[in-house]
């Protein structure tokens, strides 16, 4: 019998364009946590993707105005192809402007804008930094995909959210590794600190 060692593949779409606030860190967090669960995981940088279905997780981060305007030119199929992954039940994480563009494609609507929010917010015990004008829920799940306005290392601050997101990949695995409890304590402090003056 052949044993194929298959490592989990975490894809960062256009990391040079879509990491303005450190959203890519979420894949680093997933990679480490999967390792602590005894799995092997790689972060793969992806540009001009031809087939996104081969990845276990796909991250569409937040980019600047200039970055998106160039992406529209060089890869007009990007948003539709990520949207089809969401519909197919893959694990997509989309952040801030990535969330906005993806939701517009999926729901066929235009996201409304109001006054800009730039502060830590909490949503069902999940804490993260919002810096956006978009009128969107801070966290939204569609199938196995996670959309969030919380930018940057939201999985580092909310390890339970990270584990929920990769749920099926870690089902039945033990969180006995020494890292988990230490990290959970720090993350709890980090969530509290966010609201201290």
């Amino acid at each position: 019998m052949w044993i194929v060692s298959k490592s989990i593949r975490l894809a960062a779409l256009y990391p040079n364009h879509l990491n303005l606030n450190g959203d890519l860190a979420n894949l680093l967090v997933l990679q480490k946590r999967l390792e602590w669960y005894g799995l092997e995981a790689d972060v793969v940088y992806v540009e001009k993707p031809t087939d996104l279905t081969k990845f276990d997780v796909v991250l569409l981060g937040h980019g600047s105005r200039d970055a998106w305007s160039q992406l529209e030119d060089i890869d007009p199929e990007l948003i539709p192809s990520v949207a089809s992954l969401v519909s197919a039940g893959k694990k997509v994480m989309a952040v801030s402007s990535g969330y906005e563009l993806l939701i517009e494609a999926i729901d066929g609507l235009v996201v409304k804008h109001s006054e800009r929010v730039s502060e830590f917010r909490s949503h069902e015990e999940i804490v993260g930094y919002v810096n956006s004008e978009a009128e969107l829920e801070p966290i939204r799940w569609t199938n196995d995909s996670l959309f969030t306005l919380f930018h940057g290392p939201v999985f580092a601050k909310n390890p339970d959210l990270a584990d929920t997101f990769v749920g099926s990949l870690i089902a039945g695995l033990s969180a006995a590794n020494e890292h988990f409890s230490k990290i959970s304590e720090l993350a709890e402090v980090s969530r509290k600190t966010a609201f201290e003056d």
Binding site: I183, L186, V189, S190, T193
Partner: peptide, 9 residues
């Protein structure tokens, strides 16, 4: 806490 998480990961 954020700094420690950053270094740990």
């Amino acid at each position: 806490a954020d700094a420690a998480l950053l270094l740990a990961y």
